[in-house]
Amino acid sequence: MVVLKKLGRTASARKSLMRNMVTSLIEHESITTTFAKAKVLQSYTDRLITSAKHNTPTVNTLGKVYRPEMAVEKLYTELVGRYVQRPGGYTRIHKVEPRLGDYAPQAIIELVDGKRDMKFYMTARVVARLERQGLPIDKTTQMNLEDVIRFRQNGKEEFRATVEEMKKVFYKSEESISNLPTGSQPASRVKKNVTFVDAPTPKVYGQ
């Protein structure tokens, strides 16, 4: 495997770091770390899940995680089943605010369609807000919505339930929706001093 980022570590330390992080990721479904580590961990995890899906005799997943009694067990039972339909892209990275103290850029890396899928919950919260305000769902939210329920089992029903839950938890009072974005994105910019004309019909030669 080509080493794209060394993360200031020797090969053995890097291997230990990856094993450690991927074990935590499998256990908790979502971890917060620095952005650089998250990017390296993303390809490592995706390769691991792909090889577990193929499950050929040469695949060695035992050496790539710690605590195999938990991690390998979950990998082959829960995760492989969850990602049968999904053709790659089993992890997602969100940028978050820099770390307090050393201002290191941080990221949340999560297993897609898991119990701690931040995009799923964030989108549900935005949809809850829009419904509470009586606004239509905008283009970006619609795109996110389709993305999070596409391969999820009972995605639609679960999303609906989460939206209702979000309404109860976060947008119960009138005050909570008093200072929220009201309009969606501005419509296409109108240019001044420009008149649009229809394109002329093309001439057909040779008739």
């Binding site: 940028k95 978050v96 605010e97 964030m122 919260r125 807000r129 976060f170 929220l180």
Partner: peptide, 22 residues
């Protein structure tokens, strides 16, 4: 603007307040 709480946030970054609440 954060699409769920309406406060300022960095572009292309999650709002830490909403992340904490979730």
């Amino acid at each position: 603007r954060c699409p769920s709480c309406g406060h300022y946030k960095r572009a292309h970054t999650l709002c830490m307040h909403c992340v904490g609440e979730i």
